[in-house]
Structures are given as C-alpha cells and as structure tokens.
C-alpha cells in the first residue's frame, strides 16, 4: 500500500491492523532479510510529503515530521534549530543509511543505541500517534520505556520538540573513526528559561537514561545570569555523577547480587569512565 496522504495511511492501517508502516526501511528490511520478520502487509510512507518537513507551533515548539531523514536533519537550517538532533543525525550511520533512515523510524525501532533517542529524551519531546479519526500525544520516554506503547493501527506522525535557543550537544563513543553503533552516547541540552540542564545517556541500557539528580545539581553550579561559567572541577564531578547514576555496579556481570557485594564490575568501571568523559565533554562544550 502506498498512501499519498496521512489520512489515507491511517485508513490503510485501520483496514489492515497487521500491516507494518515502512519509511526508510533501514531497520525493517534488515529484519526481513534475516528472516526475523515477515510482515503480512506494508504501508509505504514515502509518498506522504507532509511528514518529510517540519512546522512551528506557539512560537516555542517545532513539530517535526516522522519522515524527516537523518540527512535532512543534518542540514544547517535544521542544525540551527535543534543542534543536538542534527549532531545525532550526522553520526547515525553511513550516508546510504542517513539518506533514507527517518526520525520516526529511529523512534519506533527503539534500538538501545538509536542515536536520536537520547536527544529526544533530553529535550523531553513528545510524539503524536494518529489513528483513524483520533490522535494522541505521548512523551517519547513513555513510548520508549513501554509505559505507553504504540497500539495496533496507530501511526507515529509528528514529533514535538521544544525550541530552547541555547547550546545543545550530542556526543557518542564508538571506538572507531567510521560510522558505528554507539557504545555510549550523551545528549545534553541547556534550558536557560527554566535554568535547567537536561541530559540523557544512550546505549548503556535498553532505553536512554536521565540522571535527574546530577542535572539538578549541576544546574545549581552554573552562573545563569552571567556568562554561564562553571568551575572545571564541577564539570568533572558532573561527569562522574552521571556515570555513577546511569551505569549500575553489576553492569555486564553475570550474577548481579554477587557483583554488587564486590563493587563495580570491570565492565561497569570501563563504561562509567566512557560515560563520564562524554558527559564532562558535553557539558564543557555546551557552556563554552
């Protein structure tokens, strides 16, 4: 099925609830080729041009189409709006994947290492799930954690992102120079209006994690009225704080209980070091 508009797509899904919506297909076809998935039907979203752009709402929110490709999000006009999302899109994969892979697809696949997910989590974005005759708004974090999943017949159409007009950073560690899956990633955004720092750590857990206490603590260390300076020691401490909050002692260990009594596992120590460096650098860049 190749609907030409959003309404047609929603109707098609209502008519065939078993159908799988497909946009860039970079994740879907991999699963099909490997024999893990055999969809009964596909609803191609490629012709729905309205989903491939974005619009503004109430002055403070950008409403992004789910069909925005990573390549599109990497362009300067978009990067000026939501820099961290552009950073994530730029490093999401090789050009062939970024040219067709979409924002909506990245959210729905919800891979632990999905690059846009920590950014959307840090931005506290929400998504619109449309179905025939109705639609609802769900925070991205609720969708990812499974608190409020996509229901049969629903189509992810829009992603609502607040425009913060302040520095944002996305950093990922991959262990190589070429495009690769993150071993850990950190998204950090400043929200000067609310005097808040919001941070999310990706790839270390099935969903991006928010170190809320570390965020609140570091927000208090920043001189918001002046030049937004911070003591370098506080930046370093923030890194440690984030790492300790997001990587449990038992990370990578087989018997969780045993590991806790013996202190952090070797894998946890390594991952904490990586997350801590990423968080420290991210904060440093945001406040530069």
């Amino acid at each position: 099925m190749l609907p030409a508009s959003l309404d047609e797509a929603v109707d098609a899904l209502a008519a065939t609830p078993a159908a799988v919506p497909v946009a860039g297909a970079t994740d879907l076809m991999e699963a099909v080729n490997a024999g893990r998935l055999r969809p009964a039907a596909l609803v191609g979203l490629g012709r729905i041009t309205e989903l491939r752009g974005w619009r503004y709402e109430d002055g403070g929110t950008a409403v992004l189409g789910a069909g925005l490709t990573h390549a599109r999000m990497d362009r300067p006009d978009f990067a000026a709006l939501i820099p961290a999302l552009a950073d994530a899109a730029r490093t999401a994969g090789p050009p062939q994947v970024r040219n067709v892979g979409t924002l909506g697809g990245n959210i729905v696949t919800a891979a632990p290492a999905g690059d846009t997910l920590p950014v959307l989590t840090a931005l506290e974005a929400s998504v619109t799930l449309a179905r025939a005759g109705a639609s609802r708004e769900v925070p991205v974090s609720h969708l990812l954690t499974g608190l409020d999943p996509v229901r049969p017949g629903e189509l992810l159409t829009w992603v609502r992102v607040p425009l913060l007009h302040a520095p944002q950073v996305f950093l990922k560690a991959t262990g190589r120079s070429g495009p690769a899956r993150a071993t850990a990633s950190v998204a950090l955004v400043l929200d000067p209006a609310r005097r808040a720092v919001r941070c999310a750590v990706g790839a270390v857990a099935p969903v991006p994690l928010r170190p809320l206490e570390a965020e609140a603590w570091v927000a208090g260390c920043i001189d918001w009225d002046g030049s937004r300076e911070i003591d370098p020691a506080a930046t370093a401490a923030f890194g440690e704080y984030v790492a300790a909050a997001c990587v449990p002692d038992s990370y990578g260990a087989e018997g969780a209980w045993e590991a806790v009594t013996e202190g952090p596992s070797a894998a946890a120590v390594r991952l904490r070091r990586t997350v801590s460096v990423l968080a420290r650098r991210a904060l440093g860049r945001a406040l530069k």
Binding site: T91, T174, P179, V277, R281
Partner: peptide, 15 residues
C-alpha cells in the same frame, strides 16, 4: 582535523 572518534564525534583535541 579528523580526530579519533571520527567527524562529529566526541574527540577532544586536549586529550
């Protein structure tokens, strides 16, 4: 300069 970690990566020249 292409830093370790690749373009748009987490590389920091100081390190």
């Amino acid at each position: 300069w292409l830093l370790p970690g690749g373009p748009g990566g987490a590389g920091d020249p100081a390190a």
